[in-house]
Amino acid sequence: MGILIDITSRKNLENKLRRRATTDFLTGASTRRHYINLVSREISRSLRSGSPLCLIIMDVDHFKLVNDTYGHAAGDNVLKHLCDLCRSQLRVSDSLGRIGGEEFGILLVDCPLKKALQVAERLKELIADSVLLYSGEPISCTASFGVAQLNPSTDNLELLMKRADAALYEAKGKGRNLVWADWDLGGASLG
């Protein structure tokens, strides 16, 4: 004799709660906490396997101006649109996370710096060439990108993020709508 209990609804609720805890409701990107956990796990995997890993930090240029000009609902739609564009160019193994506001992290596993720069450059061009129609108004924007490759001898999560963030600030300081790399020796720009 046994008792069967259907737990389908409980499992569905559990899955829904897990998605809410790990996915940014606006953009569909990973939440900051979930993304940091993903990056941390991938750093450990990369250090064990010796495979290259790169982190890109992307920031939407002059995003406050979008919100001030078109309204916050339009700004929300711009962020959704940009995340969709990014996801369309990433591999299944890569991760997109919302770090905060209009700043996003892109983790590229098994990817050397040269390839990561190509990805960032492709995303930069795609975003710059894209126009979102919102309530009949065309909205365009650009983004700046900072790229860093994991240095197995010195990096941990915090240092890798600091290096990518420093590269991002170089891109913004050099005029925005740029890709800037941290080569562990200084910076370099790709148009």
Rank of each mutant, 00 (worst) to 15 (best):
C54S: 14
R18E: 13
A188L: 14
P112H: 08
C111N: 14
L113K: 08
L132H: 05
D6E: 14
I57N: 03
L107D: 00
C141M: 13
I3C: 03
E103T: 10
N156F: 11
I3M: 10
D129L: 12
D94S: 03
V119N: 05
L108R: 02
S49V: 01
L82R: 00
A74S: 13
A29N: 06
K11T: 13
L53Q: 02
S130W: 13
F63P: 04
K16C: 09
Q149H: 02
N151A: 13
F63N: 06
I7R: 09
V78S: 03
Q118Y: 04
L185H: 14
E125N: 10
G28D: 03
K64I: 02
K174V: 01
R98V: 13
D68G: 00
D184M: 04
N37R: 14
L159D: 01
K115A: 07
K124Q: 15
K124P: 02
K80L: 02
T22W: 00
W180N: 15
N151I: 04
I3Y: 11
L108W: 04
L82W: 01
R87D: 01
V39E: 04
R98M: 08
L126H: 03
K174R: 12
E14R: 11
E42D: 15
L160P: 00
N151F: 06
R122E: 05
I139E: 07
Y134R: 08
D61C: 08
T142W: 08
L190P: 06
P152D: 12
A120M: 10
L17P: 01
R32N: 14
S189D: 11
E103A: 05
S30G: 00
C86S: 15
R176L: 08
S46V: 07
I5H: 10
A148N: 03
K80M: 10
D110M: 03
G28T: 02
A21E: 06
S144D: 05
T22Q: 04
L85R: 10
Y70N: 12
D155M: 04
Y35A: 10
Q89Y: 07
G71Y: 05
Q89T: 11
E137V: 15
G100I: 07
D84C: 12
L160M: 02
G191A: 14
L157T: 12
R45C: 09
